[in-house]
Simulated scan of single mutants.
Amino acid sequence: MKPVFVQPDPAGPAIELTDVTVRADRTPLIQHVNWRVDYGQHWVVLGRNGAGKTTTMSVAAAQRFPSSGTAVVLGRRMGTVDLRDLRTYIGLVGAAQRLPDETGHTAHTVVLTGHSGSVLPLWERYDDTIRDRAAKLLELVGCANLAERPVRVLSQGERARVRLARALMADPMLLILDEPFAGLDLPAREDMLAALHTLAAAQPKLATVTVTHHLEEIPVTTSHLLMLRAGTVLAAGPIADTLTDADLSDCFDRDLAVHRIGERWAAHAR
């Protein structure tokens, strides 16, 4: 029977993976992953290249079925609902993600395309309310002054924040940011972190997951941490309890020391 669309359950978990394994050509990419994200929580995911971060996120974003185990996204078990509809409630932001028609459209137009989920703007679908929402989201991420500027002239950091605003146009219940700071210089990184801080305050029920390699890129709003190593969960829980010297050293196979500077995190090799 073809799965049918069911409204996401706001009372259920945003993500719940139970004993999830994903294989490719019989090779396990992740194994026996158990992970739960509730609404309003802000998770960061750490791990070396090849640790399984991308595969785990593909399941969490309802982009890929597990080979075994159970995956619940937005309170609905994968395999019982139409994933195409479920994905409309999930915002995705990635450094490698191209913006629609980067050569000609303004930042405001690109954000509008997030409402229709289209590569090109579908003008007939954008009424004054939707156009106003796009403008307010650009303001939320600190890009109100860039609304009428062509995307092609924006810096990498400005484009990163436009991607964030575009992902928010569909009013997602879950936001996944896959290495959103890649390629950004220090000022651009700090602007992006400030935008995420503002977003958390503006939408307290939104669940977010940020994938990064660097502790300095962990948003100050982060409440929980997932560490992956060789396709398995090394640690998961409140960040203050799980971001330890021992676990971080195991995660990256290097003797590392963790520092807390105000509300920010950092690490160095001993």
Rank of each mutant, 00 (worst) to 15 (best):
L17N: 05
G104C: 05
A60D: 13
L199Q: 04
P238F: 08
G237P: 12
A194Y: 12
L248F: 13
G40M: 06
G231M: 06
R36F: 02
P180C: 05
T27S: 04
D191A: 15
S155M: 03
A257R: 15
T27K: 13
T129G: 13
L256Q: 04
G79R: 03
Q41F: 08
A235E: 10
A194R: 14
T222E: 01
H42I: 00
A246D: 15
D245V: 10
E148G: 14
M78P: 00
A267S: 15
P10I: 07
A60R: 09
V141H: 14
A60Q: 08
P204L: 08
M57A: 13
A147Y: 08
A195T: 04
R163M: 14
A200H: 12
L193H: 06
N49S: 15
A201S: 11
R159K: 15
P172Y: 01
A266L: 04
T129V: 12
D178C: 02
A266H: 12
L138Y: 09
E217G: 06
D191C: 03
P28G: 06
T109G: 02
W43R: 03
A202V: 03
A147E: 00
G94E: 07
G91P: 01
A236T: 15
G94N: 05
H213K: 07
A188P: 10
I261V: 15
G231N: 02
Q156H: 05
E124S: 11
L175N: 09
R166F: 08
G114V: 08
F252D: 00
A144K: 10
D19W: 00
L248R: 09
S116A: 11
M227Q: 14
G69Y: 01
V22S: 06
R77C: 05
H115D: 10
Q203C: 08
D247T: 09
T198G: 02
R254Q: 14
L226P: 04
S155T: 14
R48S: 14
R163T: 00
R163E: 03
R264V: 00
C143R: 11
G94V: 03
P8F: 01
D250H: 14
A182E: 11
D85H: 14
D25A: 14
R125N: 07
L226E: 02
D127A: 04
A188K: 09
D127P: 04
L256F: 13
Q63I: 05
R152C: 09
R36I: 08
W43Q: 02
V233Q: 04
T222L: 06
M1F: 10
A71G: 06
W123R: 12
M57G: 02
A230P: 03
D101M: 12
